[in-house]
Design a protein around this nucleic acid. Structure first.
Length: 401
DNA sequence: CGGCTGTACTG
DNA sequence: CAGTAC
DNA sequence: GCCG
């Protein structure tokens, strides 16, 4: 879980280099990948930072020509960009002259505007006939409280508070959705390692600011190896993945994957249930070998699978903070996880509870939980344990809206 | 080819 | 301790 | 599955 999100490359960057302070986004279209690689390396060496997506920190966009630029970013995203857009020649000339040349002669401008002929996609989720969002989001809260009263994690708190929500464009859903299914399937089969590989590949693909049309565009991305490239190739050309098709026609694989979506059910339990002859969730209604957590996971199957829209997560955070302050003045409650990372929707809500004086948090969680239960925010305990100073709590919540 | 995080909770 | 989740 |  440790966010190693920094993609620090090996070549030592020189903070005094000619590109110091620049944050660059490279439009990769119409660029030889080998050349791109060299450029990236040079930029980093000379003190620049390279962004994988068009974040608000980006100061410079580099592109071959207006078409490539437009094709990868779209005019509306570009319209909001306030930085400098130049052609790669600027970089070439800077490198050859040994000093950063003025951008003036290299500005890349879009041809007038070809009106709004882009694309207005109402991008919903096709493979989800699920309709009613009767708003019963689930909530999994995990709290961990520093062991030492010194509470040396002020940095963590400020880091949490200063995180900037940014949602990269979600092109390439065709690929990430298929990979997402493979993640579940391999995990259901007990192949966690392979599952994790796909798990790591997905965010890499999600961060791409363009739609993948050729293998060349992904051939030297991290966590994308030979197999992934082949799969991507097949998906972009045929629109599907035969490997996945094969899995999905296999009843055992299908069933194991289904059972494993139940909270508390892993590969072993899923297999046992399958061997007992169970094939559907309904078959499990009367299966009393399930643990408490698993029964709850089954009962709230649909609710737990619901994602929480960001704005609702925001409301929940405020509510949680208000109640927390009420139970113990001064307590600090912040959301972490996917919410903190700025996702548009969250599968759960991760909560971190701390207190500035480092000791007052003792015994806070039970009282807090009780309060939240009384007001019908929390519903059912999935896990609830308290050691002397570290507490863990995972629960299903119910929000009436 | 071998490693791929480590830890806490349930029953 | 096995299984599970994070 | 990917990586070293």
């Amino acid at each position: 879980m440790a966010p190693k999100t920094t993609r620090n490359q090996s070549p030592p960057s020189d903070p005094q280099g000619m590109f110091a302070g620049l944050v660059v986004f490279l439009v990769e279209k119409r660029v030889q990948s080998r050349r791109l690689q060299i450029w990236k390396q040079k930029l980093v060496q000379m003190g620049a930072t390279i962004e994988d997506s068009l974040t608000k920190r980006v100061t410079h966009i580099l592109a071959m020509d207006p078409e490539a630029l437009l094709q990868q970013l779209g005019s509306e995203r570009l319209a909001h960009f306030k930085g400098t857009v130049v052609v790669y020649q600027w970089l070439e000339d800077s490198l050859s002259s040994g000093e950063k040349v003025s951008e003036d002669m290299y500005h890349l401008k879009l041809e007038a505007d070809k009106s709004s002929n882009d694309y207005i996609s109402s991008d919903d989720e096709p493979p989800k006939p699920k309709k009613l969002r009767s708003s019963s989001p689930d909530d999994l809260a995990h709290t961990s409280i520093p062991k030492t009263p010194e509470s040396p994690n002020k940095d963590q708190i400020t880091a949490l508070q200063s995180a900037v929500p940014y949602n990269p464009p979600d092109l390439n859903k065709n690929i990430t959705q298929i990979f997402g299914k493979l993640i579940n399937i391999y995990r259901a089969l007990g192949d966690d390692r392979r599952s994790f590989s796909y798990y790591k590949a997905v965010p890499v693909i999600e961060k791409l600011p363009f739609k993948i049309q050729s293998v060349d565009q992904v051939k030297d991305l991290p966590n994308i190896g030979k197999s992934m490239q082949d799969h991507i190739q097949e998906i972009v050309t045929t629109g599907k993945l035969s490997k996945l098709e094969h899995f999905e026609t296999d009843e055992k694989v299908r069933t194991l994957a289904l059972f494993e979506e139940i909270w508390g059910v892993g590969p072993a339990t899923a297999l046992k249930l399958y061997e007992k002859g169970h094939r559907t969730l309904d078959d499990l209604k009367n299966e009393d070998s399930l643990t408490n957590s698993q029964k709850l996971g089954l009962r709230y199957y649909d609710d737990i699978k619901q994602r929480i829209p960001r704005h609702e997560a925001e409301e929940m955070e405020h509510l949680l903070q208000k109640v927390g302050e009420n139970v113990l003045p001064g307590v600090v409650i912040v959301c972490g996880g996917s919410y903190r990372r700025g996702k548009a929707s969250c599968g759960d809500l991760d909560i971190v509870i701390t207190h500035p004086d480092g000791t007052s948090h003792k015994g806070f969680l039970p009282k807090y939980v009780k309060q939240l239960k009384d007001m019908k925010f929390l519903r059912e305990d999935l896990i609830f344990s308290t050691h002397s100073e570290e507490c863990t709590y995972v629960s299903v919540t119910h929000m009436l809206s």
